[in-house]
Design a protein around this nucleic acid. Sequence first.
DNA 1: CGCTTAAATCAACTTAGGTTAACTTATTGT
DNA 2: ACAATAAGTTAACCTAAGTTGATTTAAGCG
Lengths: 265, 265
Amino acid sequence: MSSHSSGPVGVFTFRLNAVSNLSSPISYALGRLVGNVRTFPAHQDIVRQGDRPSQCCVVLRGWVSRNKVLEGGVRQITALHIPSTIPDLQSLMLPQMDHNITTVTSVEAGFIPHSALRHLMTEFPSLALAFWKETLIDGAIAREWEVNLGSRPAAQRIAHLFCEMATRLEHVGQADRIENALSFPWPLTQGQLGEATGLSAIHINRTLQELRARGLIEFTRQQVQITDLDRLTHFAGFNPDYLLSEKPGQSASLIDAYERAVASI
Amino acid sequence: MSSHSSGPVGVFTFRLNAVSNLSSPISYALGRLVGNVRTFPAHQDIVRQGDRPSQCCVVLRGWVSRNKVLEGGVRQITALHIPSTIPDLQSLMLPQMDHNITTVTSVEAGFIPHSALRHLMTEFPSLALAFWKETLIDGAIAREWEVNLGSRPAAQRIAHLFCEMATRLEHVGQADRIENALSFPWPLTQGQLGEATGLSAIHINRTLQELRARGLIEFTRQQVQITDLDRLTHFAGFNPDYLLSEKPGQSASLIDAYERAVASI
DNA sequence: CGCTTAAATCAACTTAGGTTAACTTATTGT
DNA sequence: ACAATAAGTTAACCTAAGTTGATTTAAGCG
């Protein structure tokens, strides 16, 4: 069993640091709280709508989605979470989950009891501020998804999501950039991509082909390759400001930290 | 000029209390910080995308929208704010606004300097938790809007928004209920309703007529009347849990508080 | 390794919702 | 009370996206 400050948990504390500059005692204590690291298979609920969790889940490897399922069985993915985030952090303040947290890939996740987090927040009020800030960034992403769902045609909508994920993945060192080209893992099926963008799987397929024909992206198995990020950015009307990207310097150290963490597994 | 703990400011502190049960010294201090109360005309930006505010805005009367404008000039409303909320609370933690805050109606708004809020949060860490909780509820509402925009057909989408606003307005005593019928002010034009739901103004018009024909809603000038809330709720697939409604008891005291506040203007 | 199941792809057809433009009804301002 | 403007309504037409069903390719799996 891999466990604390070394190993994948590092991904988590290092990113919180980059976003909020936590002091090292907080960051150390937080890393130590992550326990009970488990591996989940793909397409499994970690937390369900209506649950009243007593612990928070930290994504250490793999992707998870927030999603809601309507009566008819239609599923809407409202957010995608990549390693280093706590998708159900809200359960600390809002007792009942209003949505599911579901694995997209096989996922390694750790858990922190609410009680431990509450104690730590009492001891270090700045931790609450860091969590609040995470929630605010999540909110900014949700707003951009609303714009995407409400106002962009299919091709731009999909392109915008690719731009966002490319940017977020690059921040945690999970995208490869060569000049202006970016490639990164893409574990969503076309059906799931449709659930995230509010489009049918068939229309996703058509539109993906259009994007390929325009030379904006390439697909190889589970990888997306953005041929020219500037061109795709312009096409999608993407403005990365809402992601509150870390400055280049911090980003670089994050990548190092991540790679060290992964290497030590 | 009306100003502090009496008058419309009461709407604000009373609601924060209901959501997070702030102790009375905090609530009192917070109410006193709201100054510089101004009246804005309808359709005016209070804060703009890209701004770096040094104060937060408290909505005391009227409605405001969060919105983003795309290059082509299309506007997407991502949230509606009714009295008692701080729409740009995030500016305290995220320096740059990622969206506009625009008045829908004529609006009375007060302002609190960031510095004052920061001091108060340092003195009372539970205030930061209350703000975080507000942000989380905002996030839950945004997720439901994502579902609405991505997964519901026009009639259900509009109906769902009516259900949500009816519920939220009832919490702050701004909806009249007679049995199962609810009526409340509706200041959005059909065009703005389209901007909130990602539909064209013409299609809003068509769909509104369908909802009227089905006997689900009635329109009189600036009022919406829900004929039978249960029926509309069922039609829209609305589940109010995500709004974290106060329990009936608290709700009632809120209404009283609101009415006292309004009466004292 | 072939068998099974899930994704992806393709084509034909349907439909919800967008668009344009003409016209009517409310508001607003003077 | 009037003109001027904004909002609501209606109709005709168009298109982006949904749907159904058949076919191919790729991914697990015993």
